[in-house]
Amino acid sequence: MTLFDFIQRLLGRQKPSGTRAKERLQLVLAHDRSDLNPELLDQMRREILEVVQRYVEIDLEEGDVSLETEDRVTALVANLPIKRARPLPALVNAAAAAAPPRKSPADASAPSSDSESSPGQGEEASPSG
């Protein structure tokens, strides 16, 4: 360890390298294990956000779709803070656009909290080898 590293660490500016090693490994292994390259993952992330945004307004700054891995099981974890639900007509249009032949599910109960922002989060997990 160099003097510079030592000072950085004393000041709490730098993590020990072992901790960094573990974080980097966990990230790279999540990708290795799922066989998804970063571009594909990014494309999937964008498409997931697109679909979710049809139904609810989400905070894109805070939102996060990533792969996490624990005990050799990799999961796709989406953490998407919801600002508010879409107004009803937009929902109907979106549903109609997504599935034109079906009748519009206008009766579907949609939470109508317009001004209040609900900090809900959706989690989706799909185990893969």
Binding site: M1, P16, S17, G18, A21, K22, L25
Partner: peptide, 19 residues
């Protein structure tokens, strides 16, 4: 020594990751 000063992956780190 390197493990004790966390400048190396620890035994638990490796067993956790590889399960």
């Amino acid at each position: 020594r390197m493990m004790a000063s966390q400048e190396m992956l620890s035994v638990e780190d490796v067993t956790d990751i590889l399960a």
